[in-house]
Design a protein around this nucleic acid. Sequence first.
DNA 1: AATGAATGAGCATTCATTCAT
DNA 2: CATGAATGAATGCTCATTCAT
Lengths: 185, 185, 185, 185
Amino acid sequence: MVVEDKKKKILESALKLFIEKGIDNTSTSLISKEAGVATGTLYLYFETKVDLISELGTSIQEESLESFLDLIESSVGYESLEKFWHERVEWGVNNPDKYKFMIQFKSSPYNIKNTNVKIPDHEKKLLNLIEDGIKNKILKDLPSKYISGFFSAHVVFTVEYIIQTKTKERKIFFETFFDGIKYTN
Amino acid sequence: MVVEDKKKKILESALKLFIEKGIDNTSTSLISKEAGVATGTLYLYFETKVDLISELGTSIQEESLESFLDLIESSVGYESLEKFWHERVEWGVNNPDKYKFMIQFKSSPYNIKNTNVKIPDHEKKLLNLIEDGIKNKILKDLPSKYISGFFSAHVVFTVEYIIQTKTKERKIFFETFFDGIKYTN
Amino acid sequence: MVVEDKKKKILESALKLFIEKGIDNTSTSLISKEAGVATGTLYLYFETKVDLISELGTSIQEESLESFLDLIESSVGYESLEKFWHERVEWGVNNPDKYKFMIQFKSSPYNIKNTNVKIPDHEKKLLNLIEDGIKNKILKDLPSKYISGFFSAHVVFTVEYIIQTKTKERKIFFETFFDGIKYTN
Amino acid sequence: MVVEDKKKKILESALKLFIEKGIDNTSTSLISKEAGVATGTLYLYFETKVDLISELGTSIQEESLESFLDLIESSVGYESLEKFWHERVEWGVNNPDKYKFMIQFKSSPYNIKNTNVKIPDHEKKLLNLIEDGIKNKILKDLPSKYISGFFSAHVVFTVEYIIQTKTKERKIFFETFFDGIKYTN
DNA sequence: AATGAATGAGCATTCATTCAT
DNA sequence: CATGAATGAATGCTCATTCAT
């Protein structure tokens, strides 16, 4: 219990500082100080700074996908896509720090995707659903990878917008995505 | 002339290395070596490493907007928006290094927006046009800031997609943006 | 009994690791792990790492002299010297790890000769015997300290040679020492 | 000139401290302080601490052999061997610090013999001479490696003895070596 | 302007030692 | 007696920056 608390505290401090100052401008000694532990203690829980970064990034990615995976079994249409979109946006809005770090981490050299199991899994499912949607003339005939990428980019942008403006709106934002990809004859 | 050439060489070397190895993993001495000048010479043109980074980021941002500003005088509609969008996307596709760095720089702790002059200027013009579009029922009644932000995010994502897939497609991608924001009754 | 077993286990583990990796590249926590005890346990038996090293060095030195002391009562001549020499060489050949460590320890900064009791004792006896030998024209008229030092150096070198070459020869090696110091008119 | 002075100063300081405190108990920052330069300066001249140690060890070994190599062409007998022996002993007595370090370095894990060219070269020559001596019944019929090793061990011991006692004697010491290996029927 | 040797604060990491359990 | 999590001083090394030439 207490042990896990200390590790948790270190991860939280790291997260906070990484967002504030950037990963490379945050020293391990500063993380320790922020977490209220000695410099050596950090190395009791993480072999290297890179390990700490990786574990933080991976654990947040997995956490962010937990609820998402439950939803992914249905078929694609306005409602199901909206549900997915909403779930992701809401997670980002409710976990702004983790969200910011996840974005930063994903495109960083520290993200050496190898132990990721869940993530490609969920991506594949989303792609399958999109391809179904295209076949069934619910979605435009675009590369499925373009649509899934667009989905992610749209979510990221919307999360940032909502955090900044603190707006309660959601539906109209989702529709800027869905109207862009829905099938029209 | 010769002086400016040296400064240019340093900026070019920095850009190349920043993309290759990341900003924080690129030492000033390595930049100097790559540029073929002495370590001290870099400090003749830039007070600090941060200044070099800022100047590089700002100059690329400005460069990317040069052509954009000329276009911005017209009125908003499918054609003019498509022109803007196309211009931005094409610049990104044709200057992938500068583009990558610009994205990286914008969300880095080094971008302490303060010396920006041109950028808010052009943003204001885009916002004005969007607001006109909303009033004239060409665009959906959304916050104009949301639309301009969506525009940028869509461009960024599309550039990345095009670079990765080397596709020649453009129009269908633009339409995923425009169909999302165009007025429908 | 059990207590002494634990201490013994620590000393044995330390010896093994010191030879394998060197004293300074062996951490106390590694010694503990090798000995199968907790890190803190080591400090129940030794105040500091230096104390552990000293005690190990001293105890091995004493052990190596145990048999030697029994022999030292006789008079100097080819046979008695050969007996001494042989005893020492054989102990080194049969205890190569302890021997290696002893040599290493003797010339290390950790050997701050102060607690030595037995050692000078035995050296004095050897010196007395040598001085008798000189008086009785059995040995060359050399400083007795030179002869006793030569004795030790010759033993050390020979032990190393025998370990490396695994030779069974002894007598001819002893004679390279004895012929060098025996009286000739 | 000045540059070489700085490097020389660092090597001298390192030598002094290595003997005083041992290699592993001497930090690079202490070496820098002793040499009167900044911590970073050391790394201008040596890539790593290990490189510094290696260069120091190798350069001293080579220096110690310079005069030795000239002598090695003659044939083996009392006089030539005495000349070799004397040369080596005198170098050790005149360079006590370098000598102590060389001994320490030779048997340390830092001596990864690979770039040594001169050293095995000279050893081979000495072995050849000894083998000639054995064939010509000048030396005892012992393994030539034993004799060459004995030579080195005898020199080392004698150097230590002379340094400690400050004696001027030489010839009688050499004879404790030569009488031990010379042919007798 | 240009050079590059020199600086020293700062970093990631280790490890002898302590102490609450 | 025994444990092992926790400590923090110390280490080897880097690098932005300076300055005498």
